[in-house]
Design a protein around this nucleic acid. Structure first.
Length: 468
RNA sequence: GGCGACGUACCCAAGUGGCUAAGGGGGAGGUCUGCAAAAUCUUUACGCGCCGGUUCGAAUCCGGCCGUCGCCUCCA
């Protein structure tokens, strides 16, 4: 199994520190607003990665941070006289709701930044003691990048090329060098009640320190995989490396995996540009959660994905293919004969799927394998009869696949509201009409049911129905 | 200026030296059907941004050009 490691810029054979066990850290949401589909693309990437690691029989310990304190949140709170928690609560809740909607498996631990201030303080103190960090007049503490020779190794920055930005002049916190970054921000009256009184002063943590502190706490000072969006490579992850490695004197992370952007009309979608699409809006527009999930997972994670409604429509139809396939599979005979051919096709499908995913999670190729399998089975069915054992075999294989995709057997909420007796009665009534060649009546019943979301299917051996 | 990604059919998208260039959506045609719908089957790129080069052989390697996008500032 190979993964593309941002650090080396190439695919590498994956070897965890501890055999059969993977320690995984993912940069999670900043809860100052609702997370949009771009955010969820990267969370779905992690979900696929994690599910695949489990598929490969690894035990996975997954940590995803919740950033519930940052400049924007503090500003909002101070303006409106909220406490941090009052403000961030609803976004946290919305985030977890959306995770559930999109069938994203939860991390084992979701540490909140505000609950780990003391861990951060200890880490910052360590950096102060080592002379790598320095304090400024306003009580802020900065990381001196010149004390960390490897600075820039993730982004491949040449320190001599790093020009002083114009922002330096207007920066609120006086620091020595433009690229020095804040570990701790000294308290300012406009911060209101959002501060911590600690051994290193009154204030609040910088953005990067939480990930260094919390990952070490839950996964150790060196761990296997760290994920995030490509935009986090610099400065966030670069700075995490600097902090952690300078403090601990150990390699921080073995494999860095970054998810490409989801774009909107050829431009990046971000909260600051205001061109955002949220999960709940798509659901309101009657798109199914599984279609959203499918769109987000169906393009390789290192490939830019341009989101569009056409893709969602296309995804709905693609997923219907799975439903129809499963539906047609009900039509088997109880012969208890197992077809060698089916076993063979199933095994090959699983093997090819795995081969594709082993290559840096090549999901497009893997999906191709699954669709080819459906076609093969359909073709087989056109000349042979499937037995109930064949059916079981096929379903089980698809279930193994769906442990990763999480989309084939995902039920729609609508399934629960069906009054089967009523439908069967209508079908009987219609078939009576058909027998009498009363097509008008038969069609009327069909139309009525269709309006309530029930689609009738006339087959040689009788009429059945599907839920639309 | 520094770092980086990408350009394959109408749309999305695999493929990174060698069987007839996966797969999904769409289109076209057939089967089935009272008719529909659905389903299913078949079909849909002599060519992979453009121009050169290397090679017996390139979408795939090398060089140049054109185009799109991203990071370098909060951002998944």
């Amino acid at each position: 199994m190979k993964f593309y490691n941002t650090f080396t810029r190439r695919k590498e054979v994956f070897k965890p520190i501890k055999k059969n066990e993977v320690k995984l850290y993912s940069c999670g949401p900043t809860v100052y607003n609702f997370a949009h589909i771009g955010n969820f693309r990267s969370f779905i990437f992690v979900d696929i990665l994690k599910r695949y690691l489990k598929f490969k029989k690894y035990k996975v310990k997954h940590v995803m941070n919740i950033t519930d304190v940052d400049d924007k949140i503090i500003k909002k709170c101070s303006e409106n006289n909220f406490s941090l928690e009052e403000y961030t609560d609803k976004y946290k809740k919305a985030f977890f709701d959306d995770l559930k909607t999109l069938n994203i498996q939860k991390a084992d631990i979701f540490p909140k930044a505000t609950a780990h201030i003391s861990d951060m303080v200890i880490l910052i103190q360590k950096l102060l003691d080592k002379g790598i960090a320095y304090k400024t007049d306003d009580g802020s503490i900065f990381f001196n990048i010149n004390k960390f020779p490897d600075y820039g190794k993730l982004q491949k920055l040449d320190k001599d090329q790093m020009k002083k930005g114009e922002r330096v002049e207007t920066d609120e916190y006086g620091k020595d060098s433009a690229y020095d970054f804040a570990l701790w921000k000294g308290y300012k009256p406009k911060d209101g009640d959002s501060y911590w009184d600690t051994e290193i002063g009154k204030g609040r943590p910088g953005w990067h320190i939480e990930c260094s502190a919390m990952s070490a706490k839950y996964l150790g000072e060196t761990f296997d995989i760290h994920t995030g969006g490509v935009d986090l490579i610099f400065p966030h992850h670069e700075n995490e490396i600097a902090q952690s490695e300078a403090a601990n004197g150990k390699k921080f992370v073995n494999y860095w995996m970054h998810c490409e952007y989801l774009g909107l009309k050829d431009s990046k979608m971000s909260k600051s540009l205001g061109n955002t699409v949220y999960i709940k809006d798509l659901i309101k527009k009657n798109y199914s959660a599984r279609a959203i999930r499918f769109v987000l997972l169906s393009v390789h994670y290192r490939q830019k994905l341009n989101f569009s409604f056409e893709q969602l429509d296309s995804a709905e139809k693609t997923l219907k293919k799975f439903d129809d396939f499963k539906y047609e599979l009900d039509n088997v005979e109880n012969s208890n004969v197992e077809n060698e051919k089916i076993i063979d096709l199933s095994n090959k499908m699983l093997q090819n799927f795995e081969n594709s995913m082993d290559d840096d999670l090549n999901i497009s190729a893997a999906l191709g394998v699954v669709f080819t399998f459906l076609k093969q089975i359909n073709k087989f069915k056109s000349t042979n009869k499937l037995s109930n054992l064949d059916r079981e075999n096929i379903i089980n294989s698809l279930k193994k696949i769906d442990n990763i995709l999480g989309v084939i057997f995902l039920k729609s909420e609508k399934d629960n509201y069906v009054d089967e007796d009523k439908i069967l009665k209508k079908i009987e009534e219609r078939n009576e009409a058909r027998k009498n060649k009363d097509w008008d009546k038969a069609d009327k019943i069909r139309d009525e049911l269709l309006k309530s979301g029930i689609e009738l299917v006339d087959r040689n051996d009788g009429t059945t129905y599907k839920i639309k």
